[in-house]
Amino acid sequence: MSRLFRLLLVMALLVTGFALPVSAQDDAPVVAVLTPYLAQPGTQFMVEAFQAAAEAKGWTVNVIDTAGDVAALNSRLQDVVTQGVDAIVINVDPQQVPALADAVAAGIPVFGMDAGSVPELVVNVTSNGYAMAAETATYVVDRLNGVGRVVMFIFPPYPPVQKRGVIAEAIFNNTPDIEIIDQVVPDVTDGGIADSRARMEAILAANPEPGSINAVWAAWDQPALGALQAIEAAGRQDEGIIIVGIDANPQAVEAIAQGGNFEASVAQDFEGIGSTTADLVERYLNGETLTQTTVYVPTTLVTRENARVE
């Protein structure tokens, strides 16, 4: 490499540095979206729907994914505050974002997109965990005509899932002829399916009479899938045991579409959460005062009729 060439390279770098045009800084609102979870499908749907809605409104959207790094998310939040964006949207547990205080101090509104509720947020848009549990629990009660023995899979250590169990239990207890025969807290370190299957196998063994178990209510899909495997492995899939889960993950939707024991789950409307967040940002930027600090986007009960395998 000749010396001249090297010199030219340095000169070229210097010239590029100063010759770049100043990038557009027009009056359209700039909104920063920060998440560490963009690799997860639910987050992706939310962010894409937000972007689509925001771009239709003529905003500049800057999506920042810190790939699981919450410390970096705090740093980037500080940066967009310094940059002076018009609004910030976060999709992360706000309790881990002390840098929110910087946004508040700078008077920049922060919106939660399935984040969690803290006073620093203008509003958080999410799904209602209580309502989701009510949908599947009432589905079970209706399908059994109010009479039957139910196994529950719950998980009290994780607050969003704990909420679901409380509601389902209340609904079953409020139905005189529904009996909760067991409340199982599966070991989730293996993902939740394998241990749930083992626990369900034990329950099936303890209740050998056909018709002695009428339904399995699971607070999320993995235990429901484990229970399904146990029932099929025991050859008891024709006893009419109804299984319901929550979240409508792809594996669950597939099982529901096949029309076996797994009959229902609940899908969160991630696109709806994204576009609703965009609408609320718009209303706030237009000067409206938002009184509701949490906005719930309706969820959909997924059954054989509407289960689509994607």
Binding site: S23, V30, V63, I64, D65, R76, D79, V80, T82
Partner: peptide, 11 residues
């Protein structure tokens, strides 16, 4: 990281 974020460059 700071500057590119302020320039709205995709992460």
């Amino acid at each position: 990281a700071n500057g590119l974020t302020q320039l709205n460059i995709d992460s």
